[in-house]
Design a protein around this nucleic acid. Structure first.
Length: 560
RNA sequence: UGGGGUGUCGCCAAGCGGUAAGGCAACGGAUUUUGAUUCCGUCAUACGGAGGUUCGAUCCCUCCCACCCCAGCCA
């Protein structure tokens, strides 16, 4: 990939911190982690975190762990654990031996919880959830101490063990840290460390009846794994004092540090697991891998290569300011990644018959088409030319406006890698629709060059009726019809009605019939596409990955 | 009105006291058998606002304004 545009890895505040820690000897080897909760598919926001965590580790000669934050069995599934591993690997990163689960540490975490109780830093609270909420106070008023806060360590210990033994129903009691109910930071108002959950865990099965909360599990897991830089998103900033408090009050083997960066937002896109889950559940999309989804699985199926995502993430950068990246930046990264390598092919999305009147009936000939204009190594392929062809409906106008360079009555254009043809007349149906163009060709222009040096204003793509293959082509556009979906409250109300357009009468050149699913090709003058697994060699199906830039679109429809 | 953050070009984002990188978008122009690509060029006297310190401030101080996050036994 030509990467004059690629950002030099190594210049964002996280990397600055890492570099400084290395220089100052605060860390000898960098260890990061990517800690997804297996309750959904990974999306573009995760891609940013993955590239950051794995990227930093790689650049500084360290390692990055893949750790499942599986502390809430009611939401987590093995299927998600599998998809996450698939997606991280596809993105191009390797965790090597370092695949972990917070659940691997449940026994150790439990012991540390008892330690906190014994040292007077945690207590079992019998307060019901609603009452606890009321006692917590508000953003501007301090909370009230729970009456159980002063319970003896022995009593708490006994109760905590019985919680583990499964003696109590869900919600009956929790283990809480004893910190400060008057803190301005809500997370320090005696946060819950353990709750009773009679649920089967994807990995530990029914071994546990109590599960640690995120706050109690995350930092300690980091410490166990020797994570040096625990990088998370901004909303966890308020949790850092608690993260540090727990590390300080527990005999953990290491002292990890948390750093926060702004999560990724993209215009016309939603990156909320909750909403993505709803889209799948309510069948607004065909599944987690619907090509319109911002999930890695969806994007992959759409034909976007992992390298394009890495490029995109690199261009976006890492900072602490909330922002919304223009989706055009993603499209641009995709095109820039695909352009140098994607083989060129011809495909007619909306066919219009073109009859070459002066071409002998029943005959065809073979011409040679270049596979990539900037990469001769990709060679050439044979294409068939004949009397009956198909061109794009958009490439003809009976009454063309001033700047229309393509076909119109009396006008000559070049058929790519074919001949110059001139439109002599049109055939219409009873309703007056143009159903065929009657043209003549100049036999002297074989291959596309006129010996007399005359020029044409346009070169258009085409396929031969003789061997074109019928295909289905799926055109995707933004799932949402406004740059800030949900800004008015209801995200679903902003779902676009035409994010998917299925074209069934398409005709593609024979070379495309055998295109392997997922491999990018460029349909000349149209966009980048890839075969979808739904297709067959007899009737291939293509997904539009992204369209080509189209400056004519601006002439045609000024002002978007 | 509590605590924690953030404000640099339409959108991202560098900048770490010495006089505003880069990318995306946009707009010109050259090349072109993709109105693609490529290539040139234009695009912040200005860094949320007001004061102050300094020879000099986007970078330091003060005050103000705007926006984001936090009251799950979610992560």
């Amino acid at each position: 990939m030509a990467d004059t545009a690629t950002i030099e890895p190594g210049r964002d505040f996280i990397r600055d911190i890492v570099q400084a820690d290395l220089d100052a000897g605060r860390a000898s080897r960098i260890v990061t982690r990517f800690p997804p909760e297996p309750n959904g598919f990974l999306h573009l926001g995760h891609a940013k975190s993955i590239c950051l965590n794995f990227g930093v580790a790689k650049e500084f000669g360290g390692q990055c762990h893949l750790r499942f934050d599986d502390t809430n069995p009611v939401k987590e599934e093995q299927a998600f654990i599998d998809s996450i591993q698939r997606d991280v690997a596809w993105l191009g990163f390797s965790w090597g031996e370092h695949l972990y689960h917070a659940s691997d540490y449940f026994e150790q975490l439990y012991e540390w919880a008892e330690h906190l109780i014994r040292t007077g830093h945690a207590y079992v609270d019998d307060t019901p959830p609603e009452a606890m909420r009321a006692q917590r106070g508000t953003l501007t008023e301090p909370g009230q101490n729970s009456p159980f806060r002063y319970r003896s360590a022995d009593e708490s210990l006994d109760l905590f063990r019985r919680m583990r033994a499964g003696e109590f129903p869900n919600g009956a009691r929790v283990l809480r840290a004893k910190i400060d109910m008057a803190s301005g930071n809500m997370n320090l108002r005696d946060p819950v460390l353990y709750r009773i959950l009679h649920a089967t865990h994807p990995r530990t099965g029914d071994a546990w009846r109590i599960y640690p909360t995120y706050d109690f599990a995350h930092g300690q897991s980091d410490a166990i794994e020797g994570i040096t830089h625990s990088v998370c998103t901004l909303e966890f900033e308020d949790h850092k004092p608690l993260y540090d408090w727990l590390i300080e009050h527990l005999p953990v083997p290491a002292r990890p540090r948390q750093y926060e960066f702004a999560r990724l937002n993209i215009s016309y896109t939603v990156l909320s697991k909750r909403i993505l889950t709803t889209l799948v559940r309510d069948k607004h999309v065909s599944g987690w891998d619907d090509p319109r989804m911002p999930t890695l699985a969806g994007i992959r199926r759409r034909g976007v290569p992992a390298a394009a995502l890495r490029e995109f993430v690199g261009r976006v950068g890492v900072a602490r300011a909330n922002s919304v990246v223009d989706v055009a930046m993603l499209d641009s990264a995709i095109r820039d990644t695909l352009n140098p390598s994607a083989p060129r092919r011809m495909a007619v999305l909306r066919p219009l018959k073109l009859i070459v009147e002066n071409y002998p009936e029943g005959e065809t000939e073979t011409l040679e088409a270049i596979n990539h204009p900037d990469d001769p190594a990709q060679g050439t392929r044979p294409i068939t030319f004949g009397r009956e062809l198909f061109v794009e409906q958009d490439d003809f106008m009976e009454n063309p406006p001033k700047k229309f360079y393509r076909l119109s009555p009396g006008k000559e254009v070049r058929l790519r890698y074919g001949y110059y043809v001139t439109c002599q007349s049109v055939e219409k149906d009873a309703d007056g629709n143009v159903v065929a163009l009657r043209c003549t060709y100049d036999p002297e222009t074989r291959g596309g060059n006129a010996p007399d040096g005359r020029k044409v204003q346009a070169t258009i793509h085409w396929v031969a009726a003789a061997d074109a293959v019928p295909a289905e082509i799926r055109l995707y556009s933004h799932l949402f019809n406004r740059p800030d979906p949900g800004a008015d409250g209801d995200v679903m109300a902003d779902l676009s009605a035409d994010s998917l357009e299925v074209l069934t009468g398409c005709l593609v050149e024979p070379a495309l019939a055998s295109a392997p699913a997922g491999e990018a090709v460029q349909f000349e003058r149209t966009g980048y596409f890839c075969a979808d697994p739904d297709g067959t060699p007899e009737r291939p199906v293509f997904n539009r990955t992204v369209g080509l830039r189209d400056s004519y679109a601006k002439v045609r429809t000024p002002g978007r």
